[in-house]
Amino acid sequence: MSAKCAGISCANVGVVFKREFLNYFNTPIGFVFLAIFSFMINVLFFVFTQFWEAGIANLDRFFATFSLGYVIFIPAVTMRLWAEEKRSGTIELLFTMPIRHEEAILGKYFSALAFLAVALASTLFVPLTVAVIADPDWFLIFGGYIGAFFMGSAYISMGLMFSWLTKDQIVAFLFTVLAIFVLYLLGLEPVLEAMGSLKPIAAFFSVSWHYESLSRGLFDSRDIIYFISFSALFLYLNYRSITNRR
């Protein structure tokens, strides 16, 4: 008998998780995504942030690049999760199995999170390079990765829902890119300044704004609560949109 929480079977979540996670690596696409993500982060960090010219063994700006890197990477990770099932018709098969909607959502969500973790691990070469030549603060690096993971988890929950809304992966990708880009822009200083009195509201809704503290090695319970509740909200919206449609 498998463990259950609020009627959700961990075994069923595990089945969906395994299937989805392995799916990323069943085709070259998964590897291509990982390679592109790693390449993009390196370009942003080494070329645009001028790491060598700054001359400081500090990776703040490395973690800041994730905000922008996710605009492309997360939609690529989430676009096929539901859209592909709907296009190929396997969705019907999935829902005829003894798996609840919540379990399917969580399985897909965790698989995307695991893929994100692999992608983040692929960027570890940068901190290791800095560690070879200088003495970086590993607590800060740890904090930065935790923040990047939380930010990614929030975006994934949103991308998962957009993937449900369409049969076409490209449409899901574009919707998610647009949404993430808006949430990213809302966290930028010039945009916030232009918002005037709406600045605190705009900042609150921006995922990248909440990530900023964590990327600087500052653990703030408000940001963690925001990321978790944001993810929960979109997973629930995903659940609602599935039950409504069916």
């Binding site: 603060d137 607590f139 904090g143 609150f204 500052l218 653990f219 408000r222 925001y226 509740s229």
Partner: peptide, 17 residues
């Protein structure tokens, strides 16, 4: 939940320095 979290929160610097 987020509004309440702004009233009572924890914030600490993870850095060594």
């Amino acid at each position: 939940l987020n509004w309440v979290s702004y009233g009572a929160y924890m914030r600490f610097d993870l850095s060594n320095t």
